[in-house]
Design a protein around this nucleic acid. Structure first.
Lengths: 237, 237
DNA sequence: AGACTGTCAAGAGCACTGCTCACAATTGTT
DNA sequence: AACAATTGTGAGCAGTGCTCTTGACAGTCT
């Protein structure tokens, strides 16, 4: 109990600090759900908590890092929900796993449109996403890569459905290869999977941002088949 | 010169008014390109024009309608560029027309990222897109429907590539049928085309909003093949 | 020519924002 | 119980969108 005293004393203060910081983030989330990211006001958050605006700055150094906290939070909630939905499907049911993933993504977006806009919409100007956000942001793509990899090993991919990938595109995907090696998800599947992922996000964004007005009636029905179309891009159906 | 005097005098006023309004929109566009939509300040626009902030309100009733003017403007510029790019391709070259369209869309987005965010990114909160924006917003989709329709009549679509469309999805697309009838673009092509369009916008948004960081190196190369993948969704390749 | 009318720039003002700072109160630790 | 780090306070700065009154001006009508 000699050297360990310092950590203990630290956690005492730090615990209270973390708790209040958590309350601030919670209040900010509540406000975000109502007014949106652009109108998120630090003063309003302070009011909501019954504290003075300047006091909040003791815990959150700026409005931008508050936004960062909310972004990380949103990515994590989305990631957790998607992981749970996908894990509930029989491993052999590849199409089912993709559909569960896509449906969970859309469901989360519909339930939290402002959070969706926060992470998939326009980045707030003058705001550069810090390193903290990139790891939670990879959770959903990681789930997808799991499906893609299993689809490859299952041998059930219709390679006639997907065209070849040029060497140049193979080189263009070099960065992602530090995380997902070629022998796990080969180039054509990776390329098609990325397009399917972008298509999925694009489809949900279209719906949430109102671009389907006067175009599509029953979004749910349309989206269900849209998922089936998109996954043909990796040769699955 | 008795009754016509009034109209003449009116247009005199209206002309000056329209000119100054145009200058305001131009200044706003310049500011938009620098600071983005969320940070667009009516006062800064006024300063830029050497007029006092309150004077701007004589021409533009609120910041929101200024945004609307910019949105309409952006849609029109994008639409014009895409139409020109697509019109330059041989009518029989269906794949070429789609690629020209997609490339023009991406090119415009890269050249005007803030305008892209304005129309395809998160809608500004508390702002409902008025009727004025929906017509210019249809210019690019209209170009696409032209390609789709020609692809259908050419008989060069590989129907084996695209799955059938359920009756429910056919009904879900009812709203768009007031503009694009079924005999022009049949259900399966329309559904695939919508998914391709959403995928195109999603792909460009991914690139512009930084979601391809540490994923893709050479966006241009990757995008070129991405276009080819997306259009297989209507059975073209 | 003079009265009238509609238009417009100017500037003060309101309520709000993010953020800083000096000062006071609190509180965990010694 | 006393110390010192930590936290809360309120004033203040510079900025925002927007409203309203005031005064100047130009075109129209009698």
């Amino acid at each position: 109990m000699v050297n360990s005293s310092q950590p203990v004393h630290r956690t005492a203060r730090e615990r209270a600090r973390a708790e209040i910081t958590g309350e601030i983030v919670d209040a900010a989330r509540r406000q975000l759900a109502i007014v949106g990211a652009a109108a998120l006001s630090l003063r309003a958050v302070a009011r909501d908590l019954g504290m003075v605006s300047s006091a909040v700055y003791r815990y959150v150094p700026s409005r931008d890092v508050l936004l960062t906290l909310l972004i990380v939070d949103a990515y994590d909630v989305l990631g957790a929900e998607v992981e749970a939905a996908e894990a509930a499907i029989d491993r052999a049911d590849l199409l089912g796993r993709w559909i569960a993933t896509g449906t969970a993504v859309r469901g989360w977006g519909l339930a939290h449109p402002h959070d969706w806009a926060l992470i998939f919409g326009s980045p707030v100007p003058g705001y550069a996403a810090p390193q903290d956000t990139i790891r939670p942001a990879t959770r959903v793509p990681e789930v997808l890569c799991g499906i893609f990899a299993d689809a490859v090993t299952s041998g059930r991919l219709d390679t006639a459905l997907v065209g070849d990938v040029s060497a140049a595109v193979g080189r263009a995907m070099e960065p992602v290869r530090t995380v997902v090696p070629r022998d796990r998800v080969p180039d054509p599947v990776m390329a098609g999977g990325l397009t399917a992922w972008a298509g999925l996000v694009g489809a949900v964004s279209f719906e949430l941002f109102g671009h389907l007005h006067n175009v599509i009636d029953d979004h749910e029905t349309f989206f269900a088949e849209e998922l089936r179309r998109l996954i043909t891009l990796i040769g699955l159906r």
